[in-house]
Design a binder for these strands. Sequence first.
DNA 1: CGGTCTCTTGACGGAGTTCAAAGCTAGTGG
DNA 2: CCACTAGCTTTGAACTCCGTCAAGAGACCG
Lengths: 198, 198
Amino acid sequence: MITMEKETIISHILKHITLSKAEADLFASVLETKHIARKEYLLRIGDICRYDYFVNNGCLKVCYIDEKGVECIIKFAIEDSWVVDLDSFLNLRPAFYYMQAIEDTTVCRISKLNHDMLHEQIPAFQKFSNMRWQNGFIALQRRIQQSLSMPAEERYSSFKEKYPGLEQRIPQKLIAAYLGVTPEFFSLMKKKALATIS
Amino acid sequence: MITMEKETIISHILKHITLSKAEADLFASVLETKHIARKEYLLRIGDICRYDYFVNNGCLKVCYIDEKGVECIIKFAIEDSWVVDLDSFLNLRPAFYYMQAIEDTTVCRISKLNHDMLHEQIPAFQKFSNMRWQNGFIALQRRIQQSLSMPAEERYSSFKEKYPGLEQRIPQKLIAAYLGVTPEFFSLMKKKALATIS
DNA sequence: CGGTCTCTTGACGGAGTTCAAAGCTAGTGG
DNA sequence: CCACTAGCTTTGAACTCCGTCAAGAGACCG
């Protein structure tokens, strides 16, 4: 059965590669749709990440806990984006990251077994994967630059560009955790920014 | 002709995938060896990165200049590692990074045309690429964590783990640029670390 | 030798943290 | 529909890490 969620993910993929009808059907057949309520976990630290996820709607945070016990957010997974703990998924290692729903969220997931099968059966899918990780690599490089050489205020601007509208949907302490500053400092920073404008 | 440099890169690849004799020969036939003297550039900002490089020996720095005019080093390319400005190479965009030799260096390079050809002709090569960018992605994620949540001293430890012995080969201001601190602060930090031990 | 590059040292300033307290919001249950 | 609580946000003071500027000490070329 082809649900609306499956339609979305397939049309997302078709933006990047071409699939025959048979290939698209094969792909659709291995997708599983899953709902996660706000505050529920999609993956916990130490679990093995056995699925690759595509977010249909809602929003997840991907985090880890640093040595001081502080939650750091490395990415928000919003609608139309992929999310996986790659190291755990590929190498069957305990997950370093955890993923938790910030809003009620719907995802499509693909098991590792099916993921490998798709790579074998569909050459274009291999190509899609390649593109995905190359682009992911480029995006991460950009984030490293920013965290190395931009002050919090500019990182905040980048956040707003990268996730338009997300600021209105989530508590601001999560933005602080994404930027790598304390909620207290983030609050100050916003106030100062406003004062500069008016 | 199969030179020593070509041997090295091929045996590097064979650690990860299997190639037939014909495939290995095809691969070897498109490699070009190139020498870069210390302080020479392999790529300048704004150029198009037309090759994918494998470093046989020596060392390069991969850098950009931030808005304040400071050189930031995002990676050292030492012997047995790959280096390319991915965004420039894939999308034919002006390079954001530059690459300069820190020591006399020998590389093997593959043009974009041949790179694409290898992907078409050798399925295993596609797989190798995939692996490369997935691992690159995992490594970058780790570096983001570090720059977000570790003080300079711990980032310094990671540097020493990641590039064993490199510290002795390069000026310490380059390490500071890699860690994202000023040479002055780095000098202080090292002194303090020594004082703590003794 | 002399000049450039690199490393060290010190005084000072600013960005961001920590801790603590108080004010706000938004659920939640009665 | 109100009251209560838990979590979020703001504010402020003291503190830390790290940057800037400046000056001197080595070190490595030509």
